[in-house]
Nucleic acid binder design. Structure first.
Lengths: 339, 339
DNA sequence: ATTAGCACTCGATAAAGGAGAGTGCTAACA
DNA sequence: TGTTAGCACTCTCCTTTATCGAGTGCTAAT
């Protein structure tokens, strides 16, 4: 693959990304100043097609990049653009701890990301498994009902409502809360299971049943449900893409995004750090075969705690999207630290 | 408007609702056993068109109901169908207090409603203004940060994170929580403002600043933000309607539904009780001119506390949708009582 | 190795030609 | 007088045909 071939491929991909129209030899030769004639470009294009990097929608149309072509572009041709300073300032400003809660900050980020890129943003919120308990409280409301409130050291609050037996009186609630706090305070959520629960059991034998219940519920509500919440931004941006003018495609993709589980699957694919680009069928889900996904991870105190993704058509402004995403990720990490 | 005209109109509307195709005189005469010839039906149809109840998409096509036609149908022709018992049982079963929290129950209802009707369900959750405070607590997390937790008598929990001055120590938090509880417990949220806050101020003069802050924040987070939350179900059902095969229409409607404020406007239109049907341009929003909205209210302890809506095309199965909605509303009211 | 020239391909767009569903009108009928 | 059969007419939808033009691949000249 000589230099000129690379230039031709690069030009075709850039042009197609910008226009969504198949690109002809004439356009390339003229617009991108290759200094050769269209005929020469045609020869190169024929070669590139043979190599599997380009495709022809039909005989005698221009060329469009193949999935492999995009792959080559992302891996070896793409130039990382510097973000304009005003965009940088805008992102920094928006995320600079105006918000006091992790989840709100993440929601804001997803909105921002989708607006800046014009694609769909997917963000997986951090797991709270490593956060420690600040306070837990059992509180009676109405008959037979109580709420459990769990406050973590980072200010995150979870709660759920449970049924409790009649015979518990206010003092019982206080007592249970007290013991739960004593035993669990300062412990990370992921440390709850093994040793600790048993010792609480023994301490509260006479109320074993209710407590058993509670611990089960806490586990469920924290570990399964609310862990790894997912936030979406700009789902309707799909409508702007010409490759999604077919209503069934749009419907398919939106249905897919409606299920939080799907999004977790999409994002959780790898736990590798750094920016990853998955193009077309490189994505596991069938419904995403015309899409590309760019993911990266964000961190807190040196540890990876979540994933950010941008979902767009394979004909995507990779370079711009990556720049924005990486910068926003940094700003988010910063924002989370200052929260 | 004689009996036969009504029969013809009714038949046309039912047929059009079922098929989405303009209806011809032949179809009506045959399929709906009017006992007259197509020619006679044609005469009636011409009269009905003159009255503004029918329209012709173009000369020599069949007729379709006009907006006025639907109006007449809903007001005077529509027969309320009894819901099949298995559907009734299904709704009752689903909403029978498997869920312990108001908002979860409402979310479930919206999902159910959209699945049963194949339209989009909109539900406005109750305002908590009349609920009384069960417990309020100020809790320090990390430096300079505290969470305020508010638990209502119905088990609803709200929380928000606030910044607090350095000089407060744990005892201060306890003291403030204590006083807040003492003064506010048992009071409905809507009663907070006037008299009470002043007396709290005086009691806590020396910490006036922080308390001031807190009360402001509580007011904001409860009254403005989380009050009247809105739940959507089946937004993608729009895609099933042939009148929304145009991608721009879908986009327009989905964008409209993306904004919670819009939905509040849509639902809040009237505070009248009972079922209301708004057809086409009877809806205030421009983007809904091809849609109909059926709303009804649900209650708790005899008081109206929220609104339920079904959004579909003007060519909607009004009868079925109303039956389902009204029954589900009853079941929801029941479910809320048992929560 | 590059390029000009040229015939050829194939989608997109427009124009033309039925086919069919449904109407409105007229005249006959009970 | 209300109802109906008959019939010409209208208008959309679908298919067919023609034209256009962008872009290619090949060949031969440079």
């Amino acid at each position: 693959m000589d230099g000129r071939k690379r230039k031709v491929l690069h030009a075709i991909i850039l042009d197609y990304i910008a226009t969504a129209d198949p690109v002809g030899s004439r356009t390339i030769a003229k617009k991108y100043n290759l200094g050769v004639s269209p005929a020469t470009v045609r020869n190169e294009m024929a070669d590139l097609e043979e190599m599997g990097l380009l495709e022809q929608p039909y005989t005698s149309a221009g060329r469009i990049p193949s999935q492999l072509g995009y792959r080559y572009y992302v891996d070896s041709l793409m130039i990382r653009e510097a973000l304009p300073p005003e965009i940088k300032e805008m992102i920094r400003g928006a995320l600079r701890s105006r918000v006091k809660e992790t989840e709100s900050l993440i929601q804001l980020s997803s909105k921002l990301l989708s607006q800046l890129t014009n694609y769909t943003a997917l963000i997986m919120a951090p797991s709270y498994a490593k956060n420690t308990l600040r306070h837990i409280q059992l509180l009676a409301v109405e008959e037979n009902k109580a709420v459990i409130i769990v406050v973590l050291d980072n200010g995150h609050v979870e709660h759920c409502t449970v049924e409790v037996p009649d015979y518990l009186n206010p003092e019982d609630f206080t007592a249970i809360s007290h013991i739960l706090n004593e035993r669990l305070q300062g412990l990370a959520l992921e440390q709850w299971k093994p040793s600790v629960l048993k010792s609480i059991y023994s301490e509260l034998k006479y109320k074993k049943k209710v407590l058993n219940n509670i611990i089960e519920i806490i586990e469920n509500s924290l570990a399964v449900d609310h862990d790894n919440k997912v936030f979406l931004g700009g789902t309707l941006n799909i409508f702007n893409q010409p490759e999604f003018k077919d209503i069934n495609k749009v419907k398919g993709l939106l249905s897919l995004l409606e299920e939080a589980e799907n999004i977790k699957d999409i994002l959780q694919g790898e736990n590798t750090e750094g920016t990853i680009v998955k193009i077309g069928t490189e994505n596991a889900l069938e419904g995403m075969k015309d899409c590309s996904l760019i993911t990266t991870t964000y961190e807190l105190e040196g540890e990876t705690i979540g994933t950010i993704g941008i979902l767009g058509p394979t004909r995507m402004e990779y370079s711009k999207a990556i720049s924005i995403m990486e910068f926003l990720t940094k700003a988010l990490t910063e924002g989370l630290r200052n929260i």
